[in-house]
């Protein structure tokens, strides 16, 4: 029973992190119907950048964010404007996957060359202790990860709901042509949408570096997990992805404490296939999901 409670608590914390890591993917899909396979690779890039800034300048991993977030925002805008926007629109869905897949390979190769293939990790003193809540022990690093994820998602949500940029972005997601008709510069907004998506990868990568060891090929594991999350949640739905992330995080952690690690990861794929068989548009997704 204690084991299950422990699994449940850890699962919620991990699920919150998953929600942050997959939020960028929902944004890209929303604004451009693009599945950005390179997103997890950028997470790993952010983890390495955080590592370098931490070991080189002695910065706390979370204090590197003011440096990495703007860099990633600009990189996101650049990728959208210079690469993805230039693809032919009729084959966009397939070609953009291949394009971003190519980007992921480029990144993995470069990381492997500069940082070698061995594991890296950042260990902070505060991360090694844990908070005891009755019989349940919660490591502080997981709590920090969850808190950062919650704050970031909260900010993202506030930006989408309350700012003019957020309104323009949501209008572009819902109906690009109508958005253009009322004077929204949809191309520019789409570029910024990509930038915001990649900026979430900067935050996610820093948190990832804090709680888990990483290596250049680590992004493959995340591709599977994050893609499963956004399909189960319904492609393009930020809220759906967040709910699916929490759900799968809890399931993963419960299976982890009761069965083993292989089956815990396998749960993501099992739920992915179940979703396709039962409800291909995802459990929380809207009408646009199925066609893409």
């Amino acid at each position: 029973m204690t084991l299950l409670l422990q699994g449940l608590a850890l699962g919620i914390l991990t699920g919150g992190l998953y929600a942050l890591l997959s939020s960028g993917l929902s944004l890209y899909f929303g604004v451009m119907r693009v599945v950005m396979v390179a997103h997890p690779a950028f997470l790993i890039v952010a983890a390495y950048l955080t590592f370098t800034l931490h070991t080189g300048l002695g910065l706390d991993p979370l204090l590197t964010l003011p440096i990495t977030v703007p860099v990633f925002f600009v990189a996101g805008v650049a990728i959208q404007r210079l690469l993805i926007a230039r693809l032919a629109s009729d084959t966009m869905a397939m070609m953009s996957v291949l394009l971003t897949f190519g980007l992921a390979l480029i990144i993995e190769g470069l990381l492997g060359t500069f940082y070698t293939g061995s594991y890296r990790s950042i260990s902070m003193e505060y991360a090694t202790q844990s908070l005891a809540l009755g019989p349940v022990r919660l490591p502080y690093d997981r709590i920090i990860a969850f808190a950062v994820a919650a704050v970031t998602l909260g900010v993202l949500f506030a930006v989408l709901r309350m700012t003019r940029f957020g309104q323009a972005l949501r209008a572009t997601i819902q109906h690009p042509e109508a958005a253009r008709l009322i004077g929204i510069k949809t191309e520019r907004v789409t570029g910024y949408g990509f930038g915001v998506g990649l900026a979430t990868a900067a935050v996610g990568g820093a948190v990832l570096a804090l709680i888990t060891p990483f290596f250049p090929a680590a992004h493959w594991v995340w591709i599977g997990k994050l893609m499963a999350i956004i399909v189960v949640g319904g492609l393009g739905s930020v809220q759906g992805a967040a709910v699916a992330a929490l759900m799968l995080g809890v399931i993963e952690s419960l299976v982890l404490v009761t069965v083993d690690a292989t089956w815990a990861t396998m749960m993501f794929y099992i739920f992915l296939f179940l979703t396709l068989v039962v409800r291909p548009q995802g459990f929380f997704g809207g009408r646009l999901a199925q066609r893409f």
């Binding site: 397939m94 599977g224 794929y269 992915l272 396709l276 199925q290 066609r291």
Partner: peptide
Amino acid sequence: VRVRGASFVIVSIALVSM
């Protein structure tokens, strides 16, 4: 093959990992 485009690619990647 119930899903097209990007979802299909995701499924195919998931299959290898699985």
